[in-house]
Amino acid sequence: MVRVLPVLIQLALLVYCLIDCIQTDSALVRNLPKAAWVLLIVFLPLVGGVAWLVAGRPARGAAARSVPWPSTATAGFPEYERPRVTGPDDDPEFLAGLRDSDERHERMLRDWEADLRAREQGLRDGGPAGDDGTPEPRPGS
């Protein structure tokens, strides 16, 4: 058991340091590029792991490089220049188009109702009505 303990400690250090190095932001890694730290940890597990913990790991409280606005959040525009996207309920042009569409449908419905009344009146007055509401001549007349 005593002979296995150093191997387990070295393996645990390798795994911990490798995972920590891979998950660390590249901008926060100190002294060497991130790829160099990964290679150092893999090829020299004990020395590379200790070196990573001492000299490569980001200092406590280190923050990533900050920019005035993150490009992914505002698509490259500062807050005051960002295009404002509104929903359809806030768009006056959209609402006006709905009103026009409703008025057009109401007119169409009134025309259909008038056409239906004319056809019904034509049927009551003397026979089947045509498309224009006038009675069609009866066969044999």
Rank of each mutant, 00 (worst) to 15 (best):
L11E: 15
L13D: 03
L13A: 07
I19E: 09
D20M: 07
I22S: 06
T24V: 14
S26M: 15
L28P: 06
V29G: 10
V29D: 06
R30N: 14
N31Y: 07
I41N: 01
F43A: 12
L44F: 11
L46D: 02
G48M: 04
G48N: 08
V50F: 01
L53P: 02
V54E: 02
A55G: 03
A55E: 05
A55L: 05
A55P: 01
G56H: 00
R60N: 13
A64Q: 12
V67W: 07
V67R: 11
P68E: 05
W69G: 14
T74Y: 12
G76I: 01
F77W: 08
E79D: 08
E79P: 06
Y80I: 11
Y80S: 13
R82L: 08
R84S: 10
R84W: 12
V85I: 15
V85R: 09
G87Q: 10
P88H: 07
D89H: 14
D89I: 10
D90H: 08
D91M: 03
D91H: 05
P92T: 02
E93H: 03
L95Y: 04
L95H: 10
L95M: 08
A96N: 03
R99D: 14
S101Q: 06
S101W: 14
R104H: 03
H105T: 09
E106N: 08
